[in-house]
Design a protein around this nucleic acid. Sequence first.
DNA 1: GCCGTTTTCGGCCCGACTGTTTTCAGTCG
Length: 579
Amino acid sequence: MEKLTNKEVSKLLAEFGDLLAINGENEFKIRAYNNAARKIQSLEANLSELIKEDSLEDIKGIGKGIAGTIKEIFENGFSQEMEELKRELPSGVLEMTKIPNLGPKRAHQLYYELGLKSVAELREALENNKVRELKGFGPKSEQKLLKGLQNYKKYVDRIIISQAVEEADKLINALKNSVEEGIIKNIEVCGSTRRRKEMIGDIDILVACAAEDKESLSKKITELELTDEIIGAGDKKVSIITCDGLQVDFRLVSSEEFPSALHYFTGSQAHNVRMRQLAKDHNLKLNEYGLIKNDDSRIDIKSEEDIFVHLGLKYIIPELREDSGEIEAAAEDRLPVSIEVSDIKGDLHMHSRYSDGAFTIEEMGEAARKRGYSYIAITDHSKSLKVANGMSVERLKKQLQEIDEVNKKMDGFRILKGIEVDIMPDGSLDFEDEILSELDLVIASVHSSFAMTEEEMTARIIKAVKNTEVNILAHPRGRILGGRAAYKVDMNQVIEAALESNTALEINSSPHRLDLDDKWSRRAKEAGALLTINTDAHHYREFNDIKYGVSVARRGWLEKDDVINTFDLDKLMKFLRED
DNA sequence: GCCGTTTTCGGCCCGACTGTTTTCAGTCG
């Protein structure tokens, strides 16, 4: 049977939790399942390995019961208890809980008191005013649910991080422009956007202002041109849906509360739960308004960092706040010294007009030099990638001459001769080794025949990685966010091969790829492999995407020395010349 | 269901907003 992925198991556990909730089970039991689902989702190791080692119960939050359920799901593809629950509850009831403002309790009521088994039946009951007769429902609930029913599928599911950052900037500027200067004391995007997750579900914006301005500011938010629908609006919290179908939550606090609100609102939820427990252990209470002692007096908090310090921790950057070991590491002073954009000395993956780029070699070089880089590599596509105007041997040789010419004009800056060579289905490369050996740097990547078995694809990629001419494996898993799933490949084996053959694994900074992702980057580092963060730019504007790649690296616990393009030119060349 | 430098039983993060209520439950983050 096909192995289930961590993600699929996580989804099943969460679904189990939802089913239990609809059935009115103990809320802490439900929480345990949801907690376990989150743990599995953010797990680095592969579940099948943990099952083999019988070490599931080592994960905090997973005990005998849930470990048993996971094993059962793995062996049989389903859990007996879950199937029984599903038999009791039609799938439409679970679907109902996806409608805004309709949770498990009310779904339970609708099913057991009105016998509603599907979203369609719910709609009919709402239209016939049947629902308002239930206890706890009324005419307003009826209207809200009808509206939610229209929209619940229309809303955007998730957007990529770059879109979220742009959208947040737009909203922040729009709000700033709608009020007098000085009203907004501080404003910051929080949530998963601040943690720089690769995909974002909704946007959270924190605003500091004076108490007397809260009401008018709340009103301003609901009146923004970008606001399509108001979900809720109080003087502390406003939730809207934008014209693009994106949910945005605003929180309004005082300047004094801003640091603790910033921490709270940045999350992740799992990180916050741990931090609040930790506060409790210190006989304190942590919430969005501050760190509060038992006698209700506040501890003076000037910055987010102060919160960590008061709880005996080193400062944890937002990218690491996922409850994946950062709190323990902060307590023991072994957090990584996270890599920063300013550590990057050059970009080793980009395209010029020789293939599918928009600019000449000189234009790309000049733009990179202006950015403050000390080197770049021009890495156009090889011949078989016809859709991207892949180069023949002759054009490659012409390009090498041109790079020599341009380098003569560049002072204190170097353009490396590179190529992005296709990995053919049999694992061979699209150019002979003899030609590749003339280059400073060879990137290998897969652009065709994605639908191979895991064994075939793994063998294909490992063969390329082990070729001594290859220095970098680009976008190793081939995924396009929101577009194409990663091809099937055993990354653990690829990482081992990269380590043995001194090949760097790329974090491709294109916000559509972000490949490797945070988890695999962390895994690669732990295995001792080296990485490289590049933009794959086809336009020099895309050099700016490097920040997204660096965010992935930060989320993956990477430090400067794990990434070859933080090296100065001499050290980099030494790495490239080693086999 | 999970967990334990006071515990194997009795807790489990904390708060905002809404609608239905007359003090609160449900939903959401």
